[in-house]
Design a protein around this nucleic acid. Structure first.
Lengths: 183, 183
DNA sequence: GCGCATTGCGCAATAG
DNA sequence: TCTATTGCGCAATGCG
């Protein structure tokens, strides 16, 4: 039902540069299973291969294609370890069923991992707020205690004074105030 | 199980199945400049079209190709807004020099943004530790103040007692304990 | 060695 | 229009 229109030049285009590489066509569909279809065309000899892959198409429709050879990133990339070839053919069949399955799984894993990461970040942020609140609470408490202490100290000193001075229980009993609270 | 049928005709392709989704073509190349090329093969009729594009290939060798149509994520993709064509031809010349420059700039921006994001996350984490330490400090202070208060209260009560009782500064002066500190 | 988890990276879409 | 963000897929790599 969806009709896609692509205005791709139709004629034959030539890839004249070298180094070229691979082309992929991907389509996403939706069902759950996966059917695979691969097509490969060997158009111009030596320069380019194309394959059409029908992927399960989860939600999105993007695909990415790496160069066939590892080609080190940046300029310092190490050359392609020649040993790669032995494993499973250089290009590692991008059309291969197995390849697709692996990609799919990895994509899931990536999604999961990112979600987790995001969640964690959020939790951390929340933790900050939590701690900030806690801090305020504690700070307030300290203020209170400090004040209480101050008052008590004053009272105490006062009495101590009285006691030390002359001890005259009747006169200056509760009217000594000469202070406030000062941390 | 889903089947996709693509009828690619030279200029316009129609994908007539449903749910379809996206088609992408990718290729990696490596050299520095960019030459473009496309290749098209009309092998089996109705099933597949391909074009190859040669991109400048910066440092890495990866390329990504988006689906030609915006195809909303999640499956609810809206059809291709027909308006896109007017701008610069759908595919927006991947080979275009301008395109490459834009990509380059965006890649920089992305890198920057991610760095920033990472930095922020790290700062947040640090903030958590900072706050935790602060909390401990405050907690300790509270403990101390509480204890001090308790002691002072006791002393104070004691004296008050003495004063209220009979006022006999010598006998039970510092041995009244009948309590502890209970916050 | 295998399979999932992480991470860096580029592409696009989109927000600002 | 340009940059900043964000989601996504691919690979390389970490890790058990």
């Amino acid at each position: 039902m969806v009709h896609v229109k692509i205005s791709w030049q139709c004629g034959v285009e030539t890839i004249d540069h070298l180094a070229l590489i691979s082309a992929r066509l991907v389509l996403a569909r939706e069902s759950a299973q996966m059917s695979k279809i691969s097509q490969q065309n060997s158009g111009t000899p030596g320069v380019n291969g194309i394959s059409v892959i029908h992927t399960p198409a989860h939600a999105s429709g993007l695909q990415q294609v790496p160069q066939l050879v590892p080609a080190g990133p940046g300029g310092g990339g190490k050359a392609v370890p020649p040993s790669k070839q032995s494993k499973k053919s250089s290009p590692m069949d991008r059309n291969s069923d197995e390849y697709r399955q692996r990609r799919e799984r990895n994509n899931m894993a990536v999604k999961k991992s990112r979600l987790k990461s995001k969640q964690k970040a959020q939790d951390t942020l929340q933790r900050v707020n939590q701690l900030k609140e806690e801090n305020e609470r504690l700070e307030a408490k300290i203020k209170l205690l400090t004040k209480e202490l101050s008052v008590l100290k004053d009272l105490f000193l006062e009495h101590a004074h009285n006691l030390a001075d002359n001890v005259q229980p009747s006169s200056t009993e509760k009217t000594t105030n000469s202070d406030s609270a000062g941390q």
